[in-house]
């Protein structure tokens, strides 16, 4: 399998935060969701990949090329979408396009115009007058108009209304249909990823908690629900974290056999979604700390 993106032990240290030995692989033609709570380091990691932030250690290969040596060449094939518009707000779409298009050898005017039409974006209105959704749609139109092989998106759906959000997710699914394009998509809105992602990388406190196929994650993690009276110190070990309430307890675990051994049929096992995994894992880390 060809890897579009490969990170090996990437580290970045700040005074109050650090990314430690981040490693994962994105295979060609798939969508990977980069999840984590706010402040987990998702945006910093994307910026490191684009050389906007310098890494302290580690290697990053994109399309098999070393980003330290061939970044300019690599960027020809990357479409990057920020969580906000960083374009010149006093320009309109056409003027902005005049600036961006000459940078790319493969700029495709027809594709650009088709996205402008699809999103219904006005070409003569200043970008600063655009709504959050329109700005994001314009970012995406630009990112998809130069035949990029890797689309990186930093929280693209945050703050968007449901219609724009679903349309955006649909566009991403269309883009990866030809199996030549891969997408790396950071978000804390995990429901978006349940719909479209093939792989999930979960970053917590600057570390990769897991980087797996989404279906495998769904099969691995599950929520256990039962009466609080069933819990004791011994049988709490297989849980990532447990929450107790008047109605009983619920906890996240990935050790199905051990849970069945400890509790038998007295507890209910339900598949865990990404939000459950993110929530319980982050709470579990707090317990440890």
């Amino acid at each position: 399998m060809t890897h579009v993106l490969e990170l090996k032990n990437v580290s970045k240290r700040y005074e109050d935060f650090s990314l430690d030995n981040i490693s994962f692989i994105l295979p060609k033609g798939f969508i990977m969701g980069l999840i984590g709570v706010n402040g987990a380091g998702k945006s910093t990691l994307l910026k490191i990949m684009m050389d906007i932030v310098k890494r302290d250690d580690g290697e990053i290969y994109i399309f098999g090329k070393d980003t330290r040596k061939q970044m300019v060449e690599i960027k020809q094939d990357i479409g990057f979408v920020f969580d906000d518009s960083h374009y010149y707000g006093h320009l309109n779409c056409d003027q902005m396009k005049q600036i961006i298009a000459p940078f790319y050898h493969n700029w495709d005017e027809e594709t650009y115009q088709s996205y402008m039409k699809r999103f219904g974006l006005p070409t003569n209105k200043k970008l600063r007058t655009f709504s959050k959704g329109m700005k994001m749609q314009y970012n995406i139109a630009v990112a998809l108009s130069h035949q990029a092989k890797l689309i990186m998106m930093d929280e693209p759906t945050a703050g968007l209304d449901p219609i724009v959000r679903r349309d955006l997710l649909h566009v991403l699914q269309e883009v990866v249909m030809n199996e030549e394009v891969s997408v790396l998509f950071s978000t804390h809105v995990t429901t978006d990823l349940e719909k479209i992602a093939d792989y999930i990388t979960y970053i917590h406190d600057g570390n990769v908690n897991f980087s797996e196929e989404k279906d495998l994650i769904s099969e691995t993690y599950f929520i256990v629900k039962g009466d609080t009276a069933l819990l004791n110190e011994q049988n709490s070990a297989p849980f990532v974290h447990i929450e107790k309430s008047r109605l009983g307890f619920q906890g996240l675990s990935k050790d199905k056999a051990e849970i069945r051994l400890q509790f038998g049929d007295e507890v209910v096992l339900e598949p865990a979604n990404l939000e459950d995994i993110m929530y319980f894992t982050s709470q579990g880390h707090k317990d440890l700390n």
């Binding site: 684009m50 970044m71 060449e73 960027k75 960083h86 940078f103 790319y104």
Partner: peptide, 9 residues
Amino acid sequence: YFLLTLPVS
């Protein structure tokens, strides 16, 4: 930010 995502060193 946006300029550094373009193919320029």
